[in-house]
């Protein structure tokens, strides 16, 4: 039999089968959808109706406290009595050295911790992402993240100050001769917070970075390999620019979270020594719940809200612009 003929016959048979199939499904009883006409107004409103519950919920739990704080920032609050003061809280805050110190502490502690965890996570991700076993390890890396923030804080408080584990370790290695009073020195105290935060959150960034690196087109790496690039060169020339938006989002999310660092400060240092570890969150807490100056605390909160939004917005825009493909 001629091959051409055979192919033609096969094709014809297949076509016929498909047609028969199509006819059968079209003829199925009751398959026609009921046509329900909708007026244009209805059609326009329908999507809003669908998202309304979610929006309402979000407004209640996020926007309401924010607006409440901003409103409260224009009052002096003495328990149940509110006295309007206009912008007095803001001018007071502006002249309050404690506020500026808290802002600086937050920036220094958060900045160093964030930089460290991002760099460590990216370095680990670079070495790990080509490893096929990494998927199996993932859960182990996730563990520090799964601890409650207060648990992490207690853990490190124990290691640094109460249990002196770190001091003992350093003495055992012969690096120091006496117990270190971590709370007695500005940078040692900050170091405690930084170490705890890096330990807790590096895995989070690591997982995200590994996922981003694994998602990139493998053929591009292969092409670069054949073009003579080392793994490091591939990383800096190709991978890093490509995953930049992912890094930006992860770091900004982490940054927003780190500016509100509270549990660790509350448990590990209480702002000591001399307020060197007092973050903005702890400052707000101290104003609100130690001096009961809720209006003043709300003012700081409102300022931080604006500040965070602006910084995050600028950073994201910047990263996305330069990372554009």
């Amino acid at each position: 039999m001629a091959t051409t003929a055979a192919t033609t016959a096969a094709t014809t048979a297949a076509t016929t089968a498909v047609e028969a199939d199509g006819a059968a499904s079209r003829a199925a009883p009751g398959a026609a959808p009921r046509l329900r006409p909708r007026r244009p107004v209805q059609r326009a409103l329908f999507p809003y109706l669908l998202v309304a519950p979610a929006v309402l919920y979000l407004l209640l739990i996020t926007l309401y406290p924010g607006v409440y704080a901003i409103y409260q920032s224009f009052f002096v609050v003495q328990f149940t009595q509110w006295f309007p003061t206009g912008f007095d809280n803001y001018t007071l805050l502006w002249d309050d050295p404690d506020f500026w110190a808290a802002l600086w502490n937050t920036f220094v502690i958060g900045g160093i911790a964030l930089t460290l965890q991002a760099v460590i996570a990216l370095t680990l991700a670079f070495f790990a992402y080509r490893d096929p076993l990494i998927r199996g390890w993932r859960i182990i890396f996730l563990m520090p993240m799964l601890f409650m923030p207060s648990a992490v804080a207690f853990l490190w408080k124990l290691a640094f100050s109460d249990g002196r584990v770190i001091s003992d370790l350093l003495m055992g290695l012969g690096l120091v001769s006496a117990n270190i009073d971590f709370l007695g020195n500005v940078w040692n105290a900050r170091l405690m917070l930084i170490v705890a935060d890096v330990w807790q959150w590096t895995p989070f960034l690591f997982i995200i970075f590994v996922a981003a690196l694994q998602a990139q087109d493998k053929e591009i790496e292969e092409a670069a390999r054949l073009d003579g690039a080392r793994w490091g060169q591939i990383f800096f020339n190709i991978s890093l620019p490509l995953i930049r938006p992912v890094i930006a989002v992860a770091v900004v999310l982490r940054g927003i979270d780190i500016t509100t660092m509270f549990a660790k400060v509350f448990i590990m240092t209480q702002g000591t020594p001399g307020g060197a570890t007092e973050t903005i969150s702890f400052f707000i807490y101290r104003m609100g719940f130690r001096t009961f100056d809720f209006g003043y605390a709300s003012t700081a909160a409102a300022l931080m809200l604006v500040f965070t939004i602006v910084v995050a917005q600028v950073l994201l825009k910047q990263f996305f612009r330069s990372g554009r493909v």
Binding site: E219, A223, A224, N237
Partner: peptide, 30 residues
């Protein structure tokens, strides 16, 4: 990397973050 072959990939495998000029120059740089 050490076999010194140049390949045209079926799916092109161009570097999306670089211009065409930089793409073509990449092997020379490396």
């Amino acid at each position: 990397r050490d076999r010194d072959v140049a390949m045209v990939f079926q799916g092109y495998a161009l570097y999306p973050n670089m211009t065409i000029y930089e793409n073509i120059r990449f092997p020379l740089r490396m």
